[in-house]
Amino acid sequence: MSSDKRLNNAYKRAKTLAFDDTSKIILFSDCHRGDNSFSDEFANNRNIYYHALKHYYNNGFQYCELGDGDELWENLTFEAIFEAHKNIYMLMKRFHEENRLHMIFGNHDMVYRNPAYVKKHLYTYFEPKDEKETTLLDQLQFHEAIVLKHSESGQELFLTHGHQADFMNYHGWRFNRFLVRVLWKPLQVWGIADPTSPARNNRELIKVEKRIKRWILRNNLIITVMGHTHRPRFPEPGDIPLFNDGSCVHPRSITGIEIEHGVISLIKWQIATKEDGTLQVVRVLLEGPQKLTDYKQNED
């Protein structure tokens, strides 16, 4: 099956989520939340991420996570990840309880495409102080893709992880997971990164982006937002409308994409130093804001 067919299937099966010019949506991906060990790349940014996510919760945003939220190649089960970053899942629970949480699976959390796995591991958790199972992300569903559809204009944004354009990370994910667990995870502690990942291999990254750009051209220039490569992208109007929200495992920062009041922006959250020497987490605008209507789709 070609990357075009995989992307077509993801689009056909996508959950449709209506939005309008009053909607506020934050897109993050590639958090790779781990177990707080030396191989947990997310651990360095967890306070930045928590602060940012709390900001979006308090300001009425919906949260869409575009895959690889949990690092389930290096870690055998979700439980160790949950214990390491419990405060984050408690915040995600609040989004979920208000129907503001929308989840997409990627290659590193491909097991979430199985509803039975999600039900077993994410619906409830054991609360030691109460000595009983407690609701966590009850009835949560993961999707391969989500289509944001504007309720008035009909404009669509196709949200997916992007591994559909990467054969080994789509069909061969179990083999890649095996290699990561037995080979690359131990080496990662010594600073040696997995060279097969498109996030660490520029040739693979370029190939993935080219395949998705080709699919966009064949599908009426539909706006596409992906993750997977960890490289932020924000095209100008008139260019091929392929966006990438980056990742949450950049050195000392996280990047994401905001959609608010009909405009789209690429943002970064990082730690900055005040004049008095104290530290604070700040939001930095990298690209935009740009009106979504400036990205014209071809007519069918």
Rank of each mutant, 00 (worst) to 15 (best):
H171E: 11
L7F: 14
E144I: 05
N298W: 06
R231P: 00
G277Y: 07
E275C: 01
E131C: 10
T278S: 15
I206G: 00
T293A: 14
L53E: 02
Q155P: 05
P237F: 11
G191V: 06
A18W: 09
I240Q: 04
N9Q: 13
S39K: 08
R94C: 03
D70T: 04
K119Q: 14
D300R: 05
N47H: 11
E71T: 05
K129F: 12
L140T: 13
N59F: 02
N44A: 11
C64V: 14
F61T: 02
S265Q: 14
H161C: 03
K24T: 06
K207W: 05
D294H: 13
V225T: 06
P115G: 07
P232T: 09
E131W: 09
A165M: 07
R181G: 10
N220D: 00
G256N: 09
E71W: 03
D130T: 12
D166T: 03
L242Q: 03
A80C: 06
V182Y: 04
E74T: 03
F234C: 09
R177Y: 04
H163M: 11
H85N: 13
P186T: 10
D130N: 11
I104G: 03
L136C: 13
C31H: 09
D40S: 10
H51R: 07
M103F: 00
W173L: 06
P289S: 12
R33I: 15
L66K: 01
H230N: 14
A199C: 10
I104K: 05
I254Q: 08
K129W: 08
L187F: 09
D35M: 00
W173T: 13
N220P: 00
